[in-house]
Amino acid sequence: MVLVQSVFDNDVRLNFSTLRITLARHPEMVKMKRLDQEVVTAVSEPDFVLAGKYGENIAVKRIVAGYFSGKWLLVPYQEGGDVSTVSATSQIEKMVGGRLILWKR
């Protein structure tokens, strides 16, 4: 387990079991080197944070190198809770559309 602080100064837990489940559901994420570090960086230093549909926050970070270069890493998490999953998208406008931006770099 890794403990990381969000931009709202709350602790967020990244459990390695969550990463295993994420990789089972999103096998393409295996291509991201150091996925755990990318998730920690996304939560602690996001480009922006969106409000999720179910009370969670979604940390969004632009991926600048590697297989996913140019895409966006999405990390839904609960403030004071856990990271729930991880995914990548190139359609960030669709993701942001209609959602409240809680924090922006």
Rank of each mutant, 00 (worst) to 15 (best):
Y67V: 04
S84A: 13
E28C: 00
G52T: 11
E45Y: 13
Q37F: 10
K33W: 07
P46H: 03
I21D: 07
N10S: 11
G52Q: 13
F8D: 04
T22V: 08
I58H: 01
R25I: 04
D36Y: 12
L73N: 05
V49W: 09
P46L: 04
L102S: 05
I101R: 01
L23T: 03
V83L: 11
L35V: 14
L100R: 14
S69T: 12
T18E: 06
Y77P: 02
F8V: 05
S69A: 15
T89L: 10
T22K: 00
S84E: 14
N57C: 13
F68T: 01
K31S: 07
Y77I: 08
K94P: 03
Y54A: 12
S44R: 11
A42R: 00
V64T: 12
M29V: 14
F68M: 00
V60Q: 02
M32W: 04
F68W: 06
I101K: 08
R25S: 09
M95G: 01
A24F: 07
M29G: 05
S69M: 04
L35P: 05
N15G: 07
V75Y: 10
M95I: 15
M1L: 08
S6L: 09
A65Q: 12
H26G: 01
M1C: 05
K94S: 13
A24M: 09
F8A: 06
I21C: 00
N10V: 08
M95A: 14
R34A: 15
K71V: 00
K94I: 12
V60E: 06
G70N: 05
K71F: 02
A65M: 10
F8I: 06
D36G: 13
